[in-house]
Amino acid sequence: MKKASSKVADVLEQKGDSVSTIQPTDTIATLSRRLRDEQVGALIVSADGRSVDGIISERDVAYALATHLGELHSMPVSALMTKTVISCAPTDKISDAAKVLRENRIRHLPVTDGKTLLGVIGMRDILIQRLDDIRHSTKKVTHLVNTNA
């Protein structure tokens, strides 16, 4: 039986707990290759792989091209990253995480346990979770209909 309200931890469990991070001193050229090769829209910036020093997304790279032109590829990640990072806890409800994404117009939320990075939950994960929920309830209803027929 599925729980009524899924938690952030449930999504992390499904995704696996490997978190990909990038160093603040890495270049934007390195970042763009990593985004492409790992098929992600954002990376957590962390000097030690555990703390959340910032977050940097495709959006940060795209918007910065307008002002930095030919310099963009050699700039350090630290120059463009968002430093005040909005995060969530593994015990938060998915629906609350979704609200935070919506209200802040962001697509990625680092999941932290106090100070330590546990994972990232994105808009795509939330939509996948929702599709899963729909599949489960459809199955349940189908079962009910069949057993009562």
Binding site: A29, S32, R59, L65, G70, E71, H73
Partner: peptide, 18 residues
């Protein structure tokens, strides 16, 4: 064309992307 295409484009075109 999306932010993603621009970000990935940097990996391919480097300093000439703009």
């Amino acid at each position: 064309i999306s932010e993603r295409d621009i970000a990935y484009g940097l990996a391919k075109h480097g300093p000439g992307l703009h």
